[in-house]
Design a protein around this nucleic acid. Structure first.
Lengths: 260, 260
DNA sequence: GCGTCTAATTGATCCAAGTCATGGTCCTTC
DNA sequence: GAAGGACCATGACTTGGATCAATTAGACGC
């Protein structure tokens, strides 16, 4: 069945929209020049002088807690965000009240790129755990991207990647293929961030995973159970161990890379 | 059922890869400064002087015929293309041999953006009818985007739009919702290009539409038939008349905008 | 420690859409 | 203009995964 009737209502009560709320005043300088994520993030490849110019425009948000919003649909678009720590999900709610998870965002990944065109946010971004972001005011970022070739190139690269990844996700694949690709993609992303690619903890609920992968939460449970029976993974609550990454990789192969 | 087993093999024989083939030498200057599509395309909003700088880097391709390739998976990424006339489809073929249509591209729309990150093409782009493109060598384009604020802004806007559109398409919707959104989206795009939003001709086959929308070709036929019975549309071969655009729009509402 | 709440699992049933099969229509091509 | 071949439409049947229902397991407050 194509559409999950379970693509259900928003889980959490709308709590504070941390960054755009009136009481929020990011003041802390961030420092791309000393950030361990710089090689995954926008400053990739910049030299020391250019990193310092980045530092001048980037500020960090306060710590946000699970369920808090970074931005909401309709908020004016002011800045691109880079996840500094923790993780976020982005999602929309359609006119039928169904929720659609667009992505999960880990440290070093950008949020808000889809708001450039309409100049307002078109999705909600919610912290999945204790998290924070670097705030890059778009006008300033765009201006700096005019001056620094490497920054401009990397911004375009990262947007290009988002386009390709979204297109892959849109493809027609079975539940098993999608889940395998999801796990393999997460594994790779954790590895890039210096964590174990074999064992990691999911910060998102089964419901969010299901919603992201266009299936019912029950299907996620069942496929996890089947994968466990087939000794591909070991699941316990939200911690996952990939026991047979090769087999999983084969199953995910058809989707190529995926960036959940 | 999630995956269309009918996500079938490539339809046409691989014919000449027109632009990247050895014999292809685009020489004709294109002229953004006099192009009627400039307000939809990359040069949107540029002044006369900047348009002339665009003219200097843009060349036009020869006319291509139905079934010819603009680029193929694995081709080195050299340029972004803007559709000048006619239409293209972009698609991948996965490791199981299933075809996945990523999009249909009309005049003024860009092709090749997903190749920036990997520096090679990750999909095939095939002409659906007699068509041509403007060729914008990426290195030069990126350099010029550093110098012209409006060009940089528009490039980022268009990529932002692609990200949002791909995410929408990835969502979980019924066959009827997806087809309604497809028709409404096409209608709007034809209108933007000065054609009737009520009556237009599909350049793509039912099979391509189905593949793009993640369903079987039979489902497209059946939904078309149902829409016709309900007096929403009138179909004859590949020409479509939207008889009740409002109703269609309501059905598509849940997907927001869509750019097939 | 005990009640409450929500997330997750598991089983039973159902249905939207996929698959298979047939026939029709419109091109080409020789 | 006959033969071959894409397309496309439509009916009959099947099925992957959704839905519904019941149960269990943590998490949190008091």
């Amino acid at each position: 069945m194509a559409r999950t009737k379970t693509a259900d209502k928003v889980a959490k009560d709308p709590t504070v929209a941390a960054v755009n709320s009136p009481g929020f005043h990011p003041k802390l300088q961030a420092a791309c020049s000393t950030c361990s994520l710089a090689q995954l993030c926008l400053p990739m490849g910049l030299d020391q002088a250019d990193l310092e110019r980045m530092d001048a425009l980037v500020t960090r948000s306060d710590l946000m807690h699970e369920g808090e919003y970074l931005f909401r649909v309709g908020d004016p678009f002011k800045a691109i965000y880079a996840v500094r720590a923790g993780s976020y999900k982005s999602y929309t709610v359609d006119s039928e009240g169904r929720e659609h998870v667009l992505g999960f965002h880990l440290a070093g990944e950008l949020l808000g790129l889809d708001a450039i065109y309409p100049e307002k946010h078109v999705c909600n971004a919610m912290a999945l755990d204790t998290a924070s972001v670097c705030v890059m005011p778009y006008d300033q970022l765009r201006a700096l991207a005019g001056q620094i070739d490497g920054l401009r190139a990397q911004l375009l690269r990262l947007m290009s990647k988002d386009i390709a990844d979204a297109a892959t996700l849109a493809g027609d694949f079975t539940a098993e293929e999608r889940i395998a690709a999801f796990l393999v993609g997460l594994s790779r992303r954790f590895q890039q961030r210096g964590f174990s690619p074999k064992e990691f903890t999911l910060t998102m609920s089964r419901r969010d995973i299901a919603n992201y992968l266009r299936m019912a939460p029950e299907t996620v449970s069942r496929v996890f159970a089947r994968f466990e029976k087939d000794k591909l993974i070991a699941v316990e609550h939200r911690s996952i161990r990939l026991s047979d990454a090769n087999k999983l990789h084969d199953m995910a192969q058809c989707m190529g890379e995926m960036r959940p």
